[in-house]
Amino acid sequence: MIPAAFDYTRPTDLGAAVQALADAGEDAKVIAGGQSLMPMLRMRFAAPTMLVDLGGVAELRGVRDDGEALVIGAMTTHDEILRDPLIQQHAPLIAQATATVADRQVRHLGTFGGSLAHADPAGDLPSVATALEATFEIAGAGGRRSVPASEFFVDYLTTVLEPGEVLTSIRVPKLPGWSTHYEKFSRVAQAWALVGVAVAVHRSNGTVADARVALTNMASKPVRARAVEDALSGASATEESLASASAHAADDAEPSSDPWASADYRRHLATVLTRRALHAAGAA
């Protein structure tokens, strides 16, 4: 189908983008890679009156080393993430999950920031950003603010972003000495996750000193599996500890049922995938 009519502007700096959004009011929308927005426009699930294209804003693109953290521009494409040496070195979890996102064509255009701002509960990157305890940098007509991942995601396709606000970059702490893994289960190739599990583990002296577990598609937004994290923290790094902790993976989740998986099946998947993810991350 053909989208409903809208006006279009392609500013070349962030100030102009924020201004264009402010001028156009509530019915304006940002377009990043368009890989989630275009299908919604075509099916007329969304009908903004103005699209502000961030594609020309160079300052929103690329990955930079900021000492203890990487700063990832919101407009960095999935494809650029996969090729970025800083990501490979300091945030391999992001590269691993991004490789499972969609297909080549979609990864050429879709962006890291767009995936997070879109906040699809089945999206892989929101739970990854949650496990990495990333910080979201936001700019709007009223100024700038920083929001931790634990507060950024609000509900199904909903974040703290207000109309007129732009996600500019994502700050990802480097986690030296930790190991990470993303485990995704889908029905066929090229499918969204039925359930996904992002883990980060820090081992010391034969124990799991610290563990973070974040779940994809186990609620209307990413959830931390706190019960697993608590059970693991300080536990001996053995297969038995992993198995008994992973049994609690769905304790804090509220998965939904859909034609592809029932809530009970999702709960089961979460426990199995959590154990596999922890194992792959070397927690035992």
Partner: peptide, 20 residues
């Protein structure tokens, strides 16, 4: 699928104005 700037994209999911 077409090549846009040499890379494969789905031309149903790009606006003509974005290819300017």
């Amino acid at each position: 699928t077409v090549l846009l700037g040499g890379r494969g994209v789905k031309s149903c999911s790009v606006l003509a104005v974005q290819a300017d």
